[in-house]
Write a protein that binds this DNA or RNA. Structure first.
Lengths: 194, 194
DNA sequence: AGTCATCGCAACTCAGAGTTGCGTTAGAGT
DNA sequence: ACTCTAACGCAACTCTGAGTTGCGATGACT
């Protein structure tokens, strides 16, 4: 729906350039300081062109986030829950370590941009749901106590990573990912995550 | 230091009113939509008065956050790590459940307001450091395996609470606090938090 | 090569950030 | 109770960025 328009005229190129420029500006200045003119200039496009395709700044940002987040998460299958959790955590760290990933996550969380709340909710709900599969497989393999809540396991895994990004604001690394996986595994195995 | 000026003239009253109005506006509209005129009107003060005391909007917001965050955290001492962790988690939930707490936390995290980054860092570092005491006491009581990292335990405790506030955006409740305490305790006892 | 939707450009309006000068008032000291 | 002064209210600015409009130029598909 979003990108699936018949590619006629210069539409698609302009659209892609403007959305990419929006993400880049978000990464550099954040939403509060983002100006449409800066986006247009970066995209090599005139300001009015932006307003012809998007009604206002909020819609533009929301669409850029939606577009940038469309790629789906590859779900690992290493054979053990420990391996899968580490892969998931490392993939999240890798995404949030990039300039665009951090900017997208921060914008989704930070500001009350109308339209972004729903995008954020769908995005995280989708990611969580996909990740749950590795926990379900572990349950089937008997790696975890019955009654363990897959969604809560995933939340336990990603929580310290987002905490570091948003709260303590230190750099993300694979050591953090591995520790998150280790802690989550220990808690889940002990039956604490119901 | 912040509010400790000799109370001469109408200064202190105006300062308190404007800072309170700033927090209230942050809670209602967020930083991106916050206008100085709205703050002034809410504080029953003229716009120029605000600009006489604070150089710009960013300084005003930073000062309001700094002032609002000055209250120090009461550290529980229930006798058991489980009890202390639950108290800490519930206190955090209570703070973040209020309108101002959520607004303050969101503003600190969300936008790149110059001056706020440092306030955020100090605030969270201070809170973490204070909370660590309960873990140190548990280590002395032999409740946890030697080598357990107090700071990491605290981070494990608060991570799912901030995750729910910022990422999944569901309502915070004591059940969340208790689960966070339960999971943290299980992971720490198993020796996974080094 | 022609057609038409799309884009560039200039010229607006409007709101909010931040500033200045001057008249007015609240409050501390005697 | 009465000054006297620092702090406040007010009006009138400038400036930047959001969002709009009309017209002429250009690029993509037939």
């Amino acid at each position: 729906m979003t990108t699936a328009q018949v590619p006629l005229g210069r539409g698609p190129k302009v659209r892609a350039a403007v959305l990419a420029a929006t993400i880049a500006e978000l990464a550099e200045t954040g939403y509060a300081e983002l100006t449409v003119e800066a986006v247009a200039k970066r995209a090599g496009v005139h300001k009015t062109t932006v307003y012809r395709r998007w009604t206002d700044r909020e819609t533009l940002v929301a669409d850029a986030l939606k577009d940038h987040v469309a790629a789906d998460l590859p779900v690992p299958d290493t054979g053990t829950l420990d391996g899968d959790l580490r892969e998931l955590a490392r993939a999240l760290v890798a995404w949030l370590s990039g300039p665009t990933g951090a900017a997208v996550a921060t914008t989704m969380v930070a500001d009350r941009v109308p339209g972004v709340a729903e995008i954020k909710h769908r995005f995280f709900a989708d990611r969580l749901a996909r990740g749950e599969i590795v926990v379900r497989r572990a349950l089937e393999r008997g790696e975890l106590p019955p009654g363990t809540d897959p969604a809560e396991v995933l939340k336990t895994l990603i929580a310290p990573i987002y905490l570091r990004l948003f709260v303590t604001a230190e750099t993300l690394d694979d050591e953090l990912a591995d520790r998150a996986a280790r802690i989550t595994l220990a808690a889940a195995r002990s039956g604490a995550i119901q």
